[in-house]
């Protein structure tokens, strides 16, 4: 039941083996993870043996470990948010509460900037939501891996589906074995990010004003994304798609509400699918 979709994909891949000739490159770190924690994937377990797969705890802490290095890049961003929010005149409870339940770095920054210049509340709500439209893509991307879960799991994991938690969990879903507890990996990355974001906002409120702007700590978020981007590139078509998205993001900068994020991503996906077609046909 759980594996039906993956079996389907797997059979499709065998059937069209000649088409999928490109070498899939896995991060060495993740290869070690597969070797140590998941000695057997469900595809090569003989039918008469008990299936071996990682426990909930192993999956959860593998997720935590995948997320921890990303917090280094996220922490300065959370502090910047705390400082800007204080400067915009938000009460401390609102700053902390927003980090706890809004959980969206760029959305919160826009919120704070608009609040600081006394924008009407309806416009703040619209803008902060449109900035987060890219989460639709994340949702679509992980949905196939979560469709067997009960609703409470889906809601919890959706709540935790942030940029970094998503990007850290996708390689495990995509390249790892389809074991029953793999959603615990996403829970691990998500909760780790939640704790990191919460503490970094509070740190920003407390000591953020002491950090001078000349340290350029805001650059660390871009660096985190660079690391995630390079590790997510496995095929030539994905590299072309990323370049197209970057170019489109620069060209569409004039779009309001940061709509260029979603527009550029969609353009990149279209270019990528087109290149993939050519790649397969060749």
């Amino acid at each position: 039941m759980i594996f039906r979709r993956d079996e389907y994909r797997y059979n499709y891949r065998i059937h069209h083996a000649r088409k999928f000739t490109d070498k899939i490159r896995t991060a060495p770190k993740y290869r070690a993870y597969i070797k140590n924690i998941m000695p057997l994937s469900n595809h090569n377990v003989p039918a008469d043996t008990m299936p071996q797969y990682a426990t909930r705890k192993a999956e959860y802490f593998a997720g935590v470990r995948a997320e921890l290095p990303l917090l280094l890049g996220l922490f300065p961003f959370g502090m910047v948010y705390g400082v800007l929010a204080l400067a915009a005149g938000l009460p401390v409870w609102a700053i902390i509460f927003m980090s706890a339940i809004f959980l969206a770095g760029s959305g919160q920054l826009i919120f704070v900037q608009l609040f600081g210049v006394a924008t009407p509340y309806s416009i703040i709500a619209t803008t902060a939501s449109i900035v987060n439209l890219r989460h639709l893509l994340y949702s679509a991307s992980v949905a196939p891996y979560l469709d067997h879960l009960p609703r409470r799991w889906k809601m919890l994991l959706s709540f935790l589906l942030t940029d970094e938690a998503y990007a850290a969990a996708v390689p495990r879903f995509r390249d790892g074995p389809a074991t029953p507890h793999r959603h615990w990996f996403l829970l691990g990355t998500g909760t780790t990010l939640w704790v990191g974001w919460f503490t970094s906002s509070i740190t920003g409120i407390l000591i953020g004003h002491a950090v001078p702007a000349s340290w350029s700590l805001d650059f660390s978020v871009a660096l985190t994304f660079i690391a995630l981007l390079v590790m997510s590139l496995q095929r030539k078509s994905e590299i072309i798609a990323a370049l197209a998205a970057a170019g489109a993001a620069l060209m569409l900068q004039s779009l309001p509400y940061k709509l260029w994020i979603l527009a550029a991503a969609l353009i990149g996906i279209a270019v990528g699918v087109f290149c993939r077609r050519l790649e397969i046909r060749r």
């Binding site: 890219r134 893509l137 994340y138 679509a140 991307s141 940029d163 998503y166 990007a167 996708v170 871009a222 994304f225 995630l228 981007l229 997510s232 590139l233 078509s237 994905e238 590299i239 798609a241 990323a242 370049l243 197209a244 998205a245 970057a246 489109a248 993001a249 260029w260 994020i261 550029a264 991503a265 353009i267 990149g268 996906i269 990528g272 699918v273």
Partner: peptide
């Protein structure tokens, strides 16, 4: 293509 394109756009 979602992760590479969104990350590149950001």
């Amino acid at each position: 293509f979602v992760p590479p394109t969104v990350l590149a756009a950001l």
